[in-house]
Simulated assay, not measured.
Amino acid sequence: MKIAMCLEPVMSPKWHYGREMCVDEAVGMRDATPEVPIWDYLTLARVKKSYEDFGYKLRVLEGWVPMDAIKRGLPEAEQEMEQVLKTIENMGALGIEVLCYGWMAVNGWMRTSNTTRLPGGALTTSFDFSLIENDPRQKGPVTISEDFLWGTLEKFLERAIPVAEKAGVKLAMHPDDPPLSPLLGVGRIMNSVENFERLLKLNDSPANGITFCQANFAAMNADVPAAIRRLGSDGRIHFVHFRDIEGDAYKMHETFHGMGRTDMYETIRAYMDIGFDGVMRPDHAPVMYGEPNANPGYEGLGRIYAVGYMRGLIEAASKERAR
């Protein structure tokens, strides 16, 4: 398995931190910068080259292509679908291996605080369902049902998987964050181990796979190492978000890597057991002293800690396995 840095397209200290730690794999993630038409071949080629010029190999794209209309079955869905398919084709032509996507409609990943303070003073993000349960949207009717979302997902895979297979690109579904349904009147479906098994059964292609975001499976109250072995037994965990939490889907906060509820060493052993050889990136690190908290969960110093921690776990598990 390979440790990667998650890097927004605008160069930042994280770009330097990664290379200084000799990380040379990158996950390209669009942040709040203006939309980049990544489905245009030359645009994607330039983006890829910007990572390469800095010393990174761009392995994964996250969050670049609008898909909400597809999930919701809106009139704009066909335009979005064409953009997704073109992106997949161009990724294959440029050697970018994995497209990470999710199926959270209307509401993406949600937190009720970006300034929760950990015991040592670092700031982290948290979610407390009690703070939104009286929201009229939560008390009102469900506007998009789970059945509807399963239907739009099945239609999406019917069109996207053949294109991905031809391009040599893997599609990797991210869990709901938090894994609750409904949330503010909208159903959510990627919120249990069983539903991820259902996703894999919708299309048995090797291109139809998972972004295993560990903290979300922990929030589902899953045995995370067991879920890795269960869902990854046929090689369809394509990408890993290495992160942890305290709590569950209803009330949780993000922790430094190795300080949450999950046995992170056992997760590394589980990835080795299934033969995972893809990209793993640190995710959602607390914000440390001197950082602006302008991008909660995605500042840089916590990732320095995370990369060292991940390397130590991988080295220890490798040596144990060799013995």
Rank of each mutant, 00 (worst) to 15 (best):
K2H: 10
M5G: 05
C6M: 13
P13L: 03
E20L: 08
M21C: 08
V23W: 04
V23G: 02
V27P: 01
A32R: 14
T33V: 11
P37D: 04
P37M: 07
I38Q: 05
W39N: 03
L44K: 09
K48E: 01
Y51A: 01
Y51L: 04
F54R: 07
V60G: 01
G63D: 07
A69Y: 07
A69N: 12
L74S: 10
L74H: 09
E76K: 01
A77I: 08
Q79I: 10
Q83V: 07
Q83I: 04
Q83F: 03
I96W: 02
L99C: 09
T112L: 01
T112S: 05
T115K: 12
T115C: 07
T116A: 06
G120I: 05
F129A: 14
S130I: 00
I132D: 01
R137E: 14
K139A: 00
S145C: 04
D147P: 11
T152I: 10
K155H: 10
P162G: 06
E165A: 13
V169R: 09
K170L: 15
K170V: 00
H174Q: 07
P175G: 04
P175D: 03
P179G: 02
P179F: 05
L180W: 05
G187D: 11
M190S: 15
N191A: 04
S192F: 13
F196P: 12
L200M: 09
L202A: 00
P206D: 09
N208M: 02
N208C: 07
G209P: 08
T211I: 08
C213W: 08
Q214T: 14
A215Y: 03
A218Q: 13
A218H: 04
A218I: 09
A219V: 13
A227S: 14
R229S: 12
F239A: 00
R243H: 03
D244M: 10
K251D: 01
H257C: 11
H257V: 14
M264V: 03
Y265T: 00
E266C: 14
R269A: 12
I274R: 11
I274M: 09
F276V: 04
V279D: 07
P282L: 05
M288N: 01
Y289H: 08
N293Q: 11
N295W: 06
N295H: 13
P296S: 08
G297F: 07
L301F: 14
I304S: 02
I304N: 00
Y305W: 15
A306G: 00
G308L: 02
I314M: 11
E320Q: 15
R323C: 07
